[in-house]
Nucleic acid binder design. Sequence first.
DNA 1: AAGGGAGGCAACCGCGGCTAG
DNA 2: CCTAGCCGCGGTTGCCTCCCT
Length: 261
Amino acid sequence: MGRAPCCDKANVKRGPWSAEEDSILKNYLEQFGNGGNWIALPKKAGLNRCGKSCRLRWLNYLRPDIKHGGFTKEEDTIICNLYCTMGTHVWSVIASQLPGRTDNDVKNYWNTKLKKNVLAGKLSDNTQVSVSTIPEEFGNSSYYLSADSAAGAFLPYVSDINCYYHQNHPAPQGMIFDPSANSNYGNKMTSTTQEAAAASSLSISSSSSTLENNYDLRSANGNVEDEGILLDDFDFEYSYELLNGFDFEKASNEVAQCLGG
DNA sequence: AAGGGAGGCAACCGCGGCTAG
DNA sequence: CCTAGCCGCGGTTGCCTCCCT
């Protein structure tokens, strides 16, 4: 036996909301709230709509704190970060990190714009990414990818496709992995992920453990010399050509597969 | 100027989780 | 414990607008 419908679909209005309906719903909710029952609300408010439709209209459009209009680069960065560390099933968590944005907004924005930009490698106008071998004194055959802070949108993309690192691989000699560093990009990511996970009652998945591979490069006096993601050859499944030339096309294809594209 | 395609976004659908009875 | 009903969510659809040919 299937679930009983929440309303009589044949006898409720569907499709776009009129200004009058918006006004009725907004006025009612501002005055009385939803009373903990969306299903009963339309009848009380005098609307010939499904309760779920009322809820959606309010949450996605009528709420006073909703932010309409284009997304900022900072918002792009947050969406990319969280999407690539937590995946597709947490739009609401991602939206919770963006004041005034709804899960529907974020989802639409990702599906129509951001995802294409990511796949095209067009993440940020001023993204500067370089790959170099780590100086020998820091360890052999390891690669260090650095990016400026404006390239935040790029970093999770990298960590997403390179999710094969050995979690317990020690930092190379001469490098100090400092998980308590305030300015550590990796820590910012970890913190955000933890908060998001806590907000959604999710446990942090194993994929987020790749964040442990974000390193600060520190000199002996403890100053941060650089920060980025350590790419180790131990469990790395991509060729060194990819790293040295950073083959965006190939990487994009990998991500496209990951995204089911 | 007109038609077709693409993009953007609001809205709907249906499922899983939760909870009250 | 079981069931029914509601809520919240992600996936999907369909309409409207804009742009290109």
